[in-house]
Amino acid sequence: MSVNNYIRERFFPHLWCPGCGHGTILNALLRTVESLGIDKSNMCMVSGIGCSARISGYVDFHSMHSMHGRALACATGIKMIKPELNVVVPMGDGDAMAIGGNHFIHACRRNIDMVAIIMNNRIYGMTGGQYSPLSGSGILATTAPYRSIDREFDATQLAMGAGATFVARTTAFHVKEIGSLLKKAFEHKGFSVVEVLTQCPTYFGRKNKFGGPVQMLEWYRDNTAPLGSKKLEENSDLIPRGVFRQVDAPEYCAEYAKIVEKAHKE
């Protein structure tokens, strides 16, 4: 099947746990790249560290498995030298929002053309289930044995506040929506953020008695609603999904090309 043309088959089965949503996001991403007809040699993936970051080893793209939280900074260097590359940066929630938070807001601000995917499973999985800045209060984790008192924040709101020009959210349950939002993100010229709420059945689910992967996906099904839907209007407790923002703004590499031109004239 064609999606297999985009992966490094020899590394499968992958290392993610049974029922981990990261694989579903990889699945949707590959289909998006395929549907857009992007040549693999024009695809560059930069990831950080963590469960999510292992995604870069599985794709048959130019792939950089960088440092914890630093993927966007590394990707910025690549993109500035090779603006023609399609750069995609998948990150975990701790990766993107804690240790990489500063890089994240400034990549949003610069509006550099790349697709940032926040694979938000609300936990540090690779290290064994510590709470993340997106876990939220009241959550059990190995570092929150008495339940977390840390408040979470909304990654999409942060992205918008920092100036990202495409911001969207979906979940690992809404598999077609992941594809359609990623497609829009790739087509958008500027910094795109797609948050995908995903399940970590091994640590988050088990510790918090959320059940297995199926129950966690059902929770995302039942507790989210599309932007502008009646369902969301009637119940503000639901988590909104969809495109929060899509605006045109000067893109960083294009603006730098103008600087090069200007410098040559002066």
């Binding site: 950089m64 630093r70 900074a73 590394c74 990707a75 260097g77 500035m80 030298i81 200007k262």
Partner: peptide, 29 residues
């Protein structure tokens, strides 16, 4: 640098600067 056809960027911090250098070098610069 832009006069030489190169790229200059002031990053958000020291960490990011070194990371961007790694990325740019991999891309051939």
């Amino acid at each position: 640098l832009p006069r030489a056809g190169g790229r200059f960027i002031q990053m958000e911090d020291e960490i990011a600067s070194m990371c961007a250098v790694c990325g740019a070098s991999l891309a051939g610069a």
